[in-house]
Design a protein around this nucleic acid. Structure first.
Lengths: 115, 115
DNA sequence: TGCTATAGTATCCAAAATGATACTATTGTA
DNA sequence: TACAATAGTATCATTTTGGATACTATAGCA
């Protein structure tokens, strides 16, 4: 009872680990619905391959929905599923902490420089 | 204004990404103070090298405090710093979401099997 | 004397994640 | 006719992570 298991944390890591997934999810959270290239343009350094593969994995986890319009040139829209919205608290806490951590690191660097 | 930047998320990923860091942090959150080998025993598959290196990185980010007792055999205690406590909301939201996501995946697997 | 325990390092290797680049099909437009 | 735009794949190369293993020092104990 004393040491709660970290199993949940491991599952979460498994579903959203990687350099890109939280970023992709953040954009979908902010913009609701985005086309493939729109996502690509909002994430400057991502390659097509990475964007595709990360979206596929998120789809597999039912976090992201993929809607294909049968037209040419292709149109594919991505969005968080209803279920996927449940991941928003993680994204928000990461965003909040990360922003303040950035300031923390900066402050510390400046203090070091002064010595 | 419309598209909030994901910079915070990137910083957070940078500080706590990896297979082990969130797990280590979770244990420190639960147990407050842990010796090196105590941590190692609570994380079954981690190697000494990974535990050491991940702790060092967390120390670098001022999230984890390392207290060395000058004695032999060595005694080193790890704990979250006051500052490091600020990361707890991320850990808790990951733990919560991960736990329910695990059930979600299970439920879905069973439904697939029934078809 | 030889063994255990602790908290590490050092070195080498394997595997996983990511990146670069070229390629696809089809429609509309200049 | 040639080119742009879309949402991809396929292939290969590189980088990053992580793992296995052997090694260290020293006190206390049998």
């Amino acid at each position: 009872m004393e040491d709660k298991t970290c199993h949940g944390v491991e599952v979460a890591i498994d579903a959203m680990a990687g350099k890109w997934k939280p970023i992709i999810l953040f954009h979908l959270m902010e913009n609701k619905v985005m086309r493939f290239n729109e996502l690509k343009r909002s994430i400057p350094n991502i390659t097509q391959k990475m964007l595709t593969s990360q979206l596929r994995e998120l789809e597999y986890h039912h976090i992201v929905h993929r809607k294909v319009y049968p037209q040419v040139p292709p149109k594919v829209e991505y969005s968080l599923t209803d279920y996927g919205q449940s991941i928003i608290p993680i994204l928000k806490s990461m965003q909040k902490w990360g922003t303040s951590h950035f300031e923390h690191l900066n402050k510390n660097d400046k203090e070091q420089a002064r010595e």
